[in-house]
Amino acid sequence: MSIDQFIEGEVKSNDVVLFMKGTPQFPMCGFSGQVVQILDHLGVSYKGLNVLDSEDLRNGIKTYSKWPTIPQLYVKGEFVGGCDIIREMFQAGELQSLLKDKGVAAKAAAT
C-alpha cells in the first residue's frame, strides 16, 4: 500500500483525522497542541496520527494535501486547514458549524 493509499484510507474511514506532531495526549509541537485543545474543547472524537512516527507519513501528508506544514485537520475526507485556519474558524464559530453540517457529533455547544 502506498502512503497516499494509507492516508486516503485514514481520512475516508474516520470522520475527523488530525495529522500532528506527537499524540493527542502528548503533543510535541505547540501548533499541533492548539488544534488538540480546540478539538478537545469541542468534545469531538478524532483520530490523531503522529507524523513523527513515520518520515513517509510526514512527507506523504504534505504532498497529499499540497500543504507544507503540520498539523493538518481532515473532516469527512476533506482537508479543513492547519493550525491558524482551525483557530480562526473556531473563534468565528465556523468550525462548529462545519462539524455540525458534516454530521460530526460534538459534545460542547457551539458557542
Partner: peptide, 24 residues
C-alpha cells in the same frame, strides 16, 4: 482561508522546503 494560505505557501515554497520549519 485555505486559498489565502496556499497563495502564501506557494510564494514561500523555497523557504518552506529549506530552513523554515514553521510559518504562522
Amino acid at each position: 482561508r485555505i486559498e489565502r494560505h496556499r497563495m502564501v505557501n506557494i510564494a514561500l515554497a523555497e523557504e518552506l522546503a529549506g530552513g523554515v520549519h514553521a510559518l504562522a
